[in-house]
């Protein structure tokens, strides 16, 4: 009897302590939860919700099911900006990664002016995209822009780089690579410095040349960084559209428009908010798929130290 009472009090005490621990934990999580829910989770769900409704300019919004999505699939501009975005990603992601790796390997060596070089490579990252776009707008200006002046010097005539559908994507890609590569270089540089120098010495004793060592040891050990950087670069290629606002407004004839910029146009120029919601859900799905590929598939195939 006494024992039963004792154990009852004990378990009540235990439950109370557990409850307090839980409350404590939730209170600690509260600020993050509020911010995430208000600015991330709720907007995603609201967007998803709106993508199933009509615009309701004349009267209340009606549930239209997947009508908005079938409209999207018939929208030529949507397919064009999606294609543009894929081309843009293919052009910028591998290039900026390769360039970042090259720069990192270079400034990891003991060379004169190493700190200066590192700073120089990193500077474009510090600049806001708006500023970068304005600088490069001057480079590409037909006639008196830096590029044309240079071409004139070697006897070539001027060209409207941003006004020609054939060159506008290349021109924008070059600029984005210039801006992004320095940022990714920092990650590679950090990763290179975690590789113990005696691995290189051990390989040298075994007769491995510099290229062999780089291919067989350095590159595999940099794979976690490469993965991280490539996912970020890929997401950035869908996310970063400031340059379009400054330089081309998606033109000429949507030749340089990207998915996010098209969403912006649809939402705030045409005020078709439900169609913008539909496009946004599509964009989020693409980005989520990219992230899931990393977490589920690629992480297992890479050596983490």
């Amino acid at each position: 009897m006494v024992a039963a009472v004792m154990s009852a009090t004990e378990s009540r005490g235990l439950r109370r302590r557990n409850w307090l621990t839980n409350v404590n934990a939730w209170l600690l999580l509260l600020p993050a939860i509020v911010l995430l829910a208000t600015f991330t989770h709720y907007p995603i769900l609201a967007t998803l919700y709106h993508s199933f409704f009509s615009l309701g300019r004349s009267g209340p919004a009606a549930f239209v099911g997947l009508d908005n999505y079938s409209y999207m699939l018939d929208d030529d501009v949507f397919w064009q900006v999606l294609r543009n975005n894929v081309i843009f990603a293919l052009a910028t992601v591998p290039t900026s990664i390769a360039l970042a790796l090259l720069m990192a390997v270079w400034v990891d060596k003991k060379i004169a002016g190493r700190s200066f070089l590192r700073l120089a490579f990193f500077t474009p990252t510090v600049l806001p995209m708006i500023a970068v776009a304005n600088i490069w707008l001057f480079f590409y200006t037909p006639g008196y822009g830096l590029l044309d002046q240079f071409l004139k010097m070697i006897g070539l005539s001027g060209h409207n780089w941003l006004g020609d559908p054939a060159t506008v994507m290349t021109a924008l890609s070059v600029m984005v690579v210039w801006k992004e590569a320095g940022f990714f270089m920092i990650f590679y540089l950090a990763a290179l410095q975690t590789i113990p120098p005696d691995l290189k010495e051990a390989a040298a004793v075994e007769g491995a040349g510099r290229w062999y060592f780089f291919r067989r040891i350095t590159l595999p050990l940099l794979m976690p960084t490469t993965l991280f950087v490539s996912i970020n670069a890929l997401i950035n290629s869908f996310k970063l559209v400031d340059q379009l606002v400054i330089m081309t407004k998606g033109g000429p004839n949507n030749a340089s428009s990207l998915l996010l910029y098209y969403i912006y146009e649809v939402a705030f120029t045409f005020w078709d908010t439900t169609y913008a919601a539909t496009l946004t859900v599509t964009l989020i799905t693409i980005l989520a798929a990219v992230a899931l590929t990393k977490f589920i598939y690629l992480d297992r195939r890479i050596h983490y130290q």
């Binding site: 113990p196 005696d198 691995l199 010495e201 051990a202 004793v205 040891i217 595999p220 050990l221 050596h303 130290q305």
Partner: peptide, 14 residues
């Protein structure tokens, strides 16, 4: 034409 063992072993982790 030598071989060497390092204090840290210098094994290739991957």
């Amino acid at each position: 034409r030598i071989s060497m063992v390092f204090q840290s072993y210098a094994l290739f982790p991957h």
